[in-house]
Design a protein around this nucleic acid. Sequence first.
DNA 1: CTGAAAGCGCTTACAG
DNA 2: CTGAAAGCGCTTACAG
Lengths: 332, 332
Amino acid sequence: MTKNISDIAQMAGVAKSTVSRYLNGGSVSAKTKQKLERITREAGYVPNTFAQSLKAKRTHLIGTIVPRLDSFAAAQTMTGIDEELRTAGGRMLVYNAGQDPQREIEAMQDLARQKVAGIILMPAQVTDEHLRAAEAAGIPVLLVGQGSNRLHSLVYDDYRAGLLMGRHVLGMGHRRIAYLGVTEDDEAVGRRRKEGFRAAAADCADCDISYYESSFAIGDARLAAETILDECAPSLIVCATDNLALGVVKTAHLRGLSIPSQLSVTGFGGYEVTAIINPELTTVRFPYYEAGKHAARSMLKLTAGEEVERLTVLDVELLARESVDNLNKPSV
Amino acid sequence: MTKNISDIAQMAGVAKSTVSRYLNGGSVSAKTKQKLERITREAGYVPNTFAQSLKAKRTHLIGTIVPRLDSFAAAQTMTGIDEELRTAGGRMLVYNAGQDPQREIEAMQDLARQKVAGIILMPAQVTDEHLRAAEAAGIPVLLVGQGSNRLHSLVYDDYRAGLLMGRHVLGMGHRRIAYLGVTEDDEAVGRRRKEGFRAAAADCADCDISYYESSFAIGDARLAAETILDECAPSLIVCATDNLALGVVKTAHLRGLSIPSQLSVTGFGGYEVTAIINPELTTVRFPYYEAGKHAARSMLKLTAGEEVERLTVLDVELLARESVDNLNKPSV
DNA sequence: CTGAAAGCGCTTACAG
DNA sequence: CTGAAAGCGCTTACAG
């Protein structure tokens, strides 16, 4: 029923190789091209992707490795990748690493075996093992969210995010501050956001900043908040992600602390939910969706053998909302 | 570098067909089997999936069509599907329909062309066109979230969800109630939840229930809440999804209405965020993750030609939390 | 249980 | 610009 390239060749009275050349944009006479155009259309011809891949030894599939499927950042990025890929006839093969670095490595090996054309990886950290696996894959690997000088990378300006947030809360008059971060093994989220924040605080003589650390889980953030509140009773807790901020907000509620009058809280990310909760959370928006589109475009170029910038830095935007109290209120 | 089946055959001193038979569990003598076992292992042989698919005309890929990537339900379901598929060596190819029924149809056609082994579809509604496309695909199609007597379906007990919720809020003493639903074109979410709720209310003589409708978007729910509050000033708004409930909560906050003392709100779904906001949202938990695992298992059976129950109904669970005021408080 | 051969639907040098 | 032929790495009747 479904036509193959031989059928088309026969119908057009040319050789299979001519049809193939036509399909792949090779040199074909104008007349032949016209004829084939009509015939393939009328016959509803669709190339068999397996046969193509078997010969060409690659697919139009782009492997995408995400730390988890149910995170706002991952979902937005995947949506961007998917949409952009489709416009070019590509497809996204999702690989869920389940927050396990080891599974990220395995994913690269597995995807390489399946001959995907390229891999977009959203890693929590980039280890030597990651680099080795990426090289061994023998196909383009693009990092999103974390940088490496050995791989093409698309990162957010985490440092500036921290800087913007630092300036903002300092400007609101906060001096006794707790910074709830994550492991510095995570270069982007754990290290650079904090460094940016620290740089902003460096200009401030009378600041008292305590640094804490938690995992990415909301539950851990809730626990960390208990400790922070007991130990240093800050006027503000800056959290390295919106999820952590949600956890801190939860603990504040449970303790009967009103936000922002009794405790100010901020996040990073710009998750949708931060605009829904009350009060709305002050945070920094990260362009996850745009990053996905950008990543897909770059990957398409890489698989086509074109040049792509090694490092792209995406800008972020402060969302100053209600969860930070203004301590500069004129005293009556 | 990478070995193919001929290399293995040569190394083992047998024919390619024998190797193929060994690989696919065909009849091979114990001796040959042992030898091939060792050789394939030592050589690190990995079959070329394209060649397999080209011949066998199918893949180990299972297409999964979701309405959107960034929804809690979709993310949980995908996670379940992905995990279960992997244990069987399968892979999930995600197709994002972007909330467009037409793209769901296209997705089935596209996936069929790509010769995926089966399709798991999470549709908003099941039209005749869906049914036709599913049949034309020529591969197993499994519905999740919506039922059809013409296709294998895995659904939630939406009717019971509505019933449980109805009994709960009535039991808490609410009588003046607004039900914010969605289009009845959505059999599960729009129709059955409401029917269940209505059944619970039927037992209640002095009930005053007004029915409203909105899209699935949080923004629309916020608007709908304005109308509801103006028109009928209920003590409680029952929302057909947690997202709608979030929108209603938002509007309540903006109007300065305290929850639950001045307005009670409930949802359906059991999204993670409902346990994070303050007060926690009363809702019904839907087992999305389990549904994903179940769907994958069924699909694996279907592609293997095994029998699978046409209809599976997954149970739901009421999560009675803080967003519903108890009107039965003893008056002092 | 095993092997030789054909074929899945393409692409790619190689000639012309 | 075009065609004939080989080959990508498998699977599958068909004999034996």
